[in-house]
């Protein structure tokens, strides 16, 4: 990390440490966990170019598993998170293995359909308790010693988990592994001809993304003490797509910002019922028509343009490429 990013990082840590004394901690925890969920999702969409429309399956099913082992098997919260994450990763391995056989638009449809299967399993399995969900999940002490029963102490645990998860995503993106993923996004044939085992990279990215979505989902049950059907529904998959899209897919922090925006919106509009759905639909349409790079993407592009103009260097225009008509071959 450069000095500048260290300073930024310390600032963010300070901000996160001060935040719960100003803003309601439950809201912050929800925003942080969705930020992790959206970042994990964006690893696939933004850096491999694969649109998964089924990420709710990993998020929501991990929540069920975590809630079940904590409530019924009486495991600690850390055990719940590990179990939920492991199941999400395993699910991701199977789904990824099936879905990467198709590209582009079909990939989205396959993941959506597979996730719907998980939804029906969650609806019918006995351990998920159908429409009721798993309620009143206890907040046991962390590692058996640290008390997290009040919202403030839980907040610090959740913040550490979410930030660690997002840093892992960032690390993956900036690693040689991430470089290969981007090469696949830009030109799959080329990457293949250079000797990279494209399918293996895609699968690994898929499993990583699913596992981190699982971390977010299984930590969420500590906050709300509830795992329910709304976490595995297709609507949830749509929401995480929206978060990445509005924040800026293909940027590291955009999806996290998008998650905060969407969670805040849901919070303020919760009493209007269907209004949230309508507004989310309008945002989808507006972002696709007006600013496809998302908030962070557009800001970066604007910045870049300013800098270039300031340096009187007119050799190149905005650097963040927009994805133009790049159809997957044969699809």
């Amino acid at each position: 990390m450069s000095t500048r990013s260290v300073i930024v990082f310390l600032l963010v840590v300070a901000l996160l440490a001060a935040a719960p004394f100003v803003v309601y901690p439950v809201f912050l925890m929800k925003a942080l966990l969705f930020a992790l969920f959206a970042s994990a999702f964006n690893l696939l969409l933004g850096y491999v170019g694969l649109l998964s429309f089924g990420h709710a399956a990993f998020f929501g099913f991990a929540a069920y598993v975590s809630a079940h082992v904590v409530k019924v098997w009486e495991w600690g919260p850390e055990g719940g998170i590990v179990a939920g994450t492991a199941v999400a990763a395993a699910l991701g391995l199977v789904f990824g293995w099936l879905a990467i056989r198709r590209q582009g638009i079909y990939f989205a449809m396959v993941t959506l359909a597979l996730a719907q299967m998980v939804y029906f399993v969650s609806l019918q399995a006995s351990f998920t308790h159908g429409e009721d969900g798993i309620q009143a999940v206890p907040r046991r002490p962390l590692f058996g010693i640290v008390d997290i029963s009040d919202n403030l102490s839980l907040y610090f645990f959740v913040a550490v988990v979410a930030v660690a998860g997002m840093l892992l995503v960032r690390r993956a993106i900036h690693s040689p592994f991430g470089e290969v993923l981007r090469a696949i996004r830009e030109n799959e044939q080329r990457a293949r001809s250079l000797g990279f085992r494209v399918d293996r990279y895609k699968l690994l990215a898929f499993v990583l993304s699913a596992a981190l979505a699982g971390v977010a989902g299984s930590t969420k049950i500590l906050v709300f003490q509830l795992a329910s059907l709304s976490d595995v529904e297709w609507m949830m998959s749509g929401e995480v797509v929206l978060m990445a899209l509005i924040g800026g897919m293909g940027t590291v922090w955009g999806p996290a910002l998008g998650a905060v925006v969407i969670v805040a919106m849901q919070n303020y509009l919760a009493q209007f019922g269907a209004m949230v759905t309508i507004l989310q639909g309008i945002i989808f349409v507006a972002v696709v028509l007006l600013f496809r790079r998302g908030i962070v993407g557009e800001a970066l592009a604007f910045w870049e343009k300013r800098r270039k103009a300031g340096a009187a260097d007119d050799t190149a225009s905005a650097t963040l490429p927009e994805r133009q008509g790049k159809a997957a071959p044969g699809e």
Binding site: L51, A108, V285, V288, A327
Partner: peptide, 14 residues
């Protein structure tokens, strides 16, 4: 003419 994904996302919004 844009990537297929945008059509999917826009119609999902609709």
């Amino acid at each position: 003419g844009l990537d297929h994904l945008y059509g999917l996302l826009l119609t999902f919004g609709l």
